[in-house]
């Protein structure tokens, strides 16, 4: 590798994300191995393979096994230490999105775009559930 560096050729200085996770990974708990996210359908196996989660809810679905991976990838950091978004103390953004979704749902139903209407309904349902409620 040093030879390649000195010649100025392609340098494998960082591993692909998936390899990073695969090589540092302890075997996850059985519950995580079998788990899938009931919001987006992602599985733990999909995450292991791609290094990507499917939706915000996956962070809770995969619980401790995922937490262990995040802490490894983040070099020991265990929790967010920065700012929260402004709207967390002010639900205006949430409501704006909700009212926008309701308007879009009306429009989709009016235009007989049922696939789109179903997708909007799914999102409204997720919003009311609230994955980041304390």
């Amino acid at each position: 590798m040093e030879h390649a560096i000195e010649k100025g050729h392609s340098i494998p200085l960082t591993q692909p994300i998936a390899a990073l996770f695969a090589s540092t990974m302890k075997r996850p708990a059985a519950s995580a191995t079998n788990a899938f996210c009931d919001v987006c359908g992602s599985t733990w196996a999909h995450f292991r393979k791609s290094g990507r989660l499917g939706c915000p809810s996956c962070y809770d679905t995969f619980g401790d096994a995922l937490a262990a991976q995040i802490i490894l990838a983040q070099r020991g950091s265990v929790a967010h230490g920065g700012e929260a978004p402004r709207q967390s103390s002010c639900p205006e953004g949430h409501q704006l999105l909700r009212s926008q979704l309701l308007r879009e749902l009306d429009a989709a139903v009016g235009a007989e775009q049922y696939e789109r209407a179903a997708s909007i309904r799914d999102r409204l349902r997720t919003l009311t559930g609230g994955i980041d409620a304390p």
Partner: peptide
Amino acid sequence: DEVLAERLEFAFHPRWGFLTACPTNVGT
């Protein structure tokens, strides 16, 4: 970011901060 946050609600987690598809970007 602040202009966008005026009207959009970002995925945010009390422990993990701003949520991202790849956990190598999570937090900030």
